[in-house]
Design a protein around this nucleic acid. Structure first.
Length: 487
RNA sequence: GCGCCUCUAGCUCAACGGCAGAGCAACGGACUCUUAAUCCGCAGGUUCGGGGUUCAAAUCCCCGGAGGCGCACCA
């Protein structure tokens, strides 16, 4: 049987269901359609045969009769997973199932490999992640999660366009990894004989675009961090970063809470959603609290960046934090916050006014130079967004870079290094700007009610399948060369 | 990186020191209204790999691999 190059589909399963819903049992519509999809169930029954055809919109039953259907015998031998195109009249069977009574049909692709258990599908997580194409057919929920993610990104773009933001693309190959505190992947460019780093954040380039006159920009794209995998971390992940000239972090808070609530309405139909069985209300306004306030709430002790270092160190140690000598009060306060307050947070809260020591790209707080105008949005106990009034003073930025650089030299591989190009850009003048980063995978998890980031990534990062054979000392290609010593 | 758990037929799972099994899928057959169709028949295995203990190992022990969860990391 030859496979055609195209098939003229005139209706989807969902369209058939909607348009001929009114047909009564045993009734015939008099209308022919052409449908296509994958055979998910097959019930041959002598001179009759039924098959469930699934397409991206839903499923419709194919009803085949030996007296009507061409190549009826072959139809009864269709296997689960075969792609089929079928033309015929829309009817409702005597038992009440809306069907296409097949006149002509054609195989569009054979499923050579079996398709798993028709009832229980495929549940083995390794198979589900490594062979996602199989998971998507076997488990409708997997498809729904990826669809939801797609819609999330689409709506996010639309909401930002509506607000006058311009979508841009900035380099993924960075000569200097910057914009975040993370270990990079390294690669090499032959012609330039130079190492490049896959970006750990687009931040610095986006702010350079603001310097260049793009007053509202955003980028949705992939970031790469050479760190551990976990149910909440994938080495490559997607973020939204945006920058708004003339705005400060208070303005960004309003944007974040409004945008999130709008997306919740788009995707879940309400701002009050349920995550992991627990109610979560995303309606603005969200609570705003300083890090110091939250620490005091959680511990009963008033601590801040102005608390003597040894006092902070004592508290941190009591909490089991391995305090390092290089840490100042800011880092210690952050550690205490993360151990005590952060795990208790559930409803959305803007945790604001982070220590300057741990925020090298954020502008100093207008009321306290030891703090910055930075916040993280914590929702359902997770960091969903990180934002600040951007540091636009080139001298201060240089000083912060140099502090980071000293930490890098002292062995902190994740500390930043001085980025002269970026400093030169700041010398040309960055207006007051509010900036924001949002983890799109985590946002998708929230709306999809998923606990594992891999559920919202089409092909999550896995150890390569060939690793085992290589470890065993086998050359995977040895058997495929066809070259054998003569006996 | 550390700890715990998992790995048996294409898929989903039993057997837990004593002959490696079932359902579904596949394959052959019956069946003119099925709905996870039903019925009859047939076939399917390096029990993740390697080593050890034992009369006997899927099962117990050791090493390795892959995966999951938690911790650490991810400011």
């Amino acid at each position: 049987m030859s496979i055609p190059y195209r098939f003229e589909q005139t209706a989807t399963a969902a369209e058939v269901a909607a348009r001929w819903d009114h047909l009564g049992a045993g009734e015939e519509s008099g209308h022919a359609v052409a449908v296509a999809g994958r055979v998910m169930l097959s019930r041959p029954q002598g001179r009759l045969a039924f098959a469930e055809l699934r397409d991206s919109s839903g499923a419709v039953q194919l009803f085949s009769l030996a007296s009507v259907t061409k190549e009826f015998e072959a139809f009864t031998r269709l296997r689960l997973g075969d792609w089929v195109g079928a033309r015929g009249e829309v009817v409702r069977t005597k038992r009440g199932e809306l069907s296409v009574k097949v006149d002509e049909w054609v195989v569009l692709a054979e499923a050579r490999l079996p398709f798993g258990d028709k009832w229980r599908g495929v549940t083995d997580v390794e198979t589900r992640y490594r062979q996602r194409e199989m998971d998507l057919w076997a488990n409708p929920k997997s498809r729904e999660r990826l669809l939801l993610r797609s819609l999330l990104v689409r709506r996010m773009r639309e909401r930002l366009w509506d607000r006058g933001f311009v979508e841009v693309e900035t380099p993924i190959l960075h000569p200097i990894p910057g914009g975040a505190h993370a270990r990079p992947f390294v690669t090499h460019h032959r012609a330039l004989d130079t190492d490049f780093y896959l970006r750990i954040a687009p931040e610095l380039y986006l702010k350079r675009l603001v310097v260049g006159g793009f007053e509202r920009v955003f980028e949705i794209g992939r970031l790469f961090r050479n760190e551990g995998l976990s149910p909440r971390h994938n080495p490559e992940f997607t973020t939204l970063e945006l920058y708004q000239a003339y705005a400060d972090y208070e303005d960004v808070m309003v944007l974040v809470e409004e945008l999130t609530a709008e997306l919740a309405l788009d995707l879940c139909g309400a701002t009050a959603i349920t995550y992991q069985g627990r109610p979560l209300d995303l309606a603005p306004p969200w609570r705003r609290a300083t890090m110091a306030e939250l620490v005091e709430e959680a511990t009963g002790v008033a601590l801040s960046v102005h608390t003597p270092r040894h006092t902070l160190a004592e508290h941190a140690q009591q909490l089991g934090v391995a305090v390092e000598p290089a840490w100042g009060p800011g880092k210690l306060l952050l550690e205490v916050y993360e151990k005590t307050a952060e795990p208790t947070l559930w409803d959305p809260v803007f945790v604001r006014d982070y220590p300057a020591e741990v925020s090298p790209l954020a502008r100093r707080h207008r009321a306290d130079p030891e703090l910055t105008e930075r916040f993280e949005a914590v929702v359902a106990g997770r960091e969903l967004a990180n934002a600040f009034s951007e540091l636009n003073d080139p001298d201060d930025q240089r000083a912060r870079f140099e502090e980071q650089s000293a930490q890098h030299a002292a062995g902190d591989e994740e500390a930043m290094v001085v980025d002269a190009e970026y400093l030169r850009a700041l010398e040309h003048g960055l207006p007051p700007t509010g900036g924001l980063g949002v983890g799109i995978d985590r946002l998708a998890m929230l709306f999809a009610d998923a606990t594992n980031i891999r559920e919202v990534i089409s092909f999550p990062t896995m150890r390569p399948e060939r690793a085992r054979r290589a470890e065993d000392g086998e050359d995977p290609e040895a058997g495929e060369t066809g070259l054998r010593p003569e006996p």
